[in-house]
Design a protein around this nucleic acid. Structure first.
Length: 191
DNA sequence: TGAATGATCACG
DNA sequence: GTGATCATTCAT
């Protein structure tokens, strides 16, 4: 019973969206391939005052997608090498998004292995930049509509399991906020 | 534990 | 233009 998430799903509290994305499947259809994975780890970046968010110093050419309508992809490059994928939430004019930090591979595992140069399942998508490499997400998908046929999330109707939360990873400020969510015990969660 | 590696942004 | 910073990954 796969049901694609509508724009309304993303047009809600970012913390809620981040938590509810756990257990759902991210799908990328591109270049004749269908790749997907179960979302097992997310982080929320919310509003103008979140010191860890790219949006905390106002709108720039890079982060403008975060300020737009909900239900679009925000993709950027970090450390000069790696891509990260976010799903934009909340109303236009309010910058917020959910960082997809880890997946459990589902469809297209062989291609993921080839792209990642790794054989073990848990090395394919257990990190924000790893999953982008595995799924072929790059800046061409920045601003992509999550209600389109290229990249979207489906509800498989399965329970996420036990959900844990903690401070966010890889940031300097805003660590006090417990805005990282993950499925407890899942082998594909980062670290 | 630290190197790789380049886009992005504030500043002037 | 310049320099600091960076929501990471991998090999040592």
């Amino acid at each position: 019973m796969a049901k694609r998430l509508s724009r309304q799903f993303y047009d809600r509290s970012t913390l809620r969206v981040a938590r509810e994305l756990l257990g759902k499947h991210l799908v990328v259809k591109k270049d004749g391939h269908l790749l997907s994975g179960k979302i097992v780890e997310t982080e929320a970046y919310v509003g103008f005052k979140d010191p860890a968010s790219h949006a905390c110093r106002g709108m720039t050419p890079r982060n403008e997608v975060m300020f737009g309508d909900p239900g679009y992809a925000y993709v950027y490059i970090t450390y000069g090498i790696h891509h990260c994928l976010n799903l934009v939430t909340e109303r236009e004019g309010y910058p917020a998004a959910v960082l997809i930090r880890a997946l459990e591979p589902v469809d297209g595992v062989e291609l993921m292995k080839k792209r990642r140069g790794r054989r073990k399942l848990r090395d394919l998508t257990s990190g924000p930049a790893k999953l982008c490499q595995a799924l072929g997400v790059d800046r061409k998908l920045n601003g992509a509509d999550l209600c389109s046929d290229t990249i979207f999330v489906v509800d498989q109707g399965e329970a996420a399991g036990k959900i844990g939360c903690s401070g966010r990873i890889g940031i300097k400020e805003g660590k006090n906020k417990k805005w990282r969510f993950f499925i407890k015990g899942n082998q594909c969660v980062s670290r």
